[in-house]
Design a protein around this nucleic acid. Structure first.
Length: 195
DNA sequence: CCCTGATTCGC
DNA sequence: GCGAATCAGG
């Protein structure tokens, strides 16, 4: 691949948008981030002053769902998937009279009660940690998971309100630190079942 | 470890 | 001009 006008423009655009060299490289294809950086320098726009001094670069609107080729995408949710509540709450009578389309909010989800092994004693701290961290979760979709994104599922897979933690995993583990805490228990707290 | 950009230097 | 290798940080 060579630096055609189009490619250079794309480079300029993305670079000024604050995209990282590696991302630009992926987007363009056929080049490495090194190539991109090298080109950036040669073009003399090392400094992200692509636009005008008064043009505040958008602080990453949102990492678009890249359509990369993920040969490796272990769709292996959680062994102990935090099965969401059946939510089969029957409020008595179902007012299905003039319901236009209650598709928007079908589940009262939002409950930070993912993995609650009924008969389990996870340190309250760990649980608090988890519910707290879910606010920072990347909320990735299955396809967006990589080898190093937390694969802890949150919510009910049957609803729109479902996503994967996505935070950086703990080396070697499939989950982030917080979720590793509740996923892999030292099983020390389970030794009580003496018998 | 993962990632970032910066620089060098043979091609 | 190009970009892999390398360097320097986070």
């Amino acid at each position: 691949m060579s630096w055609t006008d189009e490619r250079v423009e794309m480079l300029k655009k993305m670079w000024s948008e604050g995209q990282s060299a590696s991302q630009i490289a992926k987007e363009l294809g056929g080049v490495t981030r090194n190539a991109v950086i090298g080109k950036v320098h040669r073009l003399g726009l090392s400094n992200r002053t692509g636009g005008e001094p008064g043009a505040p670069v958008e602080p990453q609107p949102e990492p678009e769902p890249r359509v990369e080729a993920r040969p490796k995408a272990p769709p292996q949710p959680a062994p102990e998937a935090p099965a969401a509540e059946p939510a089969t709450e029957d409020g008595g009578e179902v007012e299905a009279r003039t319901m236009p389309a209650p598709r928007t909010k079908i589940i009262p989800a939002g409950q930070p009660l993912p993995p609650q092994p009924s008969a389990n004693e996870i340190s309250p701290e760990a649980l608090a940690k988890v519910s707290a961290i879910e606010k920072k979760a990347k909320k990735l979709t299955l396809m967006e998971l990589t080898e190093r994104t937390c694969k802890w599922p949150v919510g009910d897979p049957a609803t729109e309100d479902f996503w994967f933690c996505g935070l950086p995993v703990q080396q070697g583990k499939p989950y982030c630190e917080a979720h590793v805490g509740v996923a892999f228990q030292p099983m020390s707290s389970r030794r009580d079942r003496k018998r």
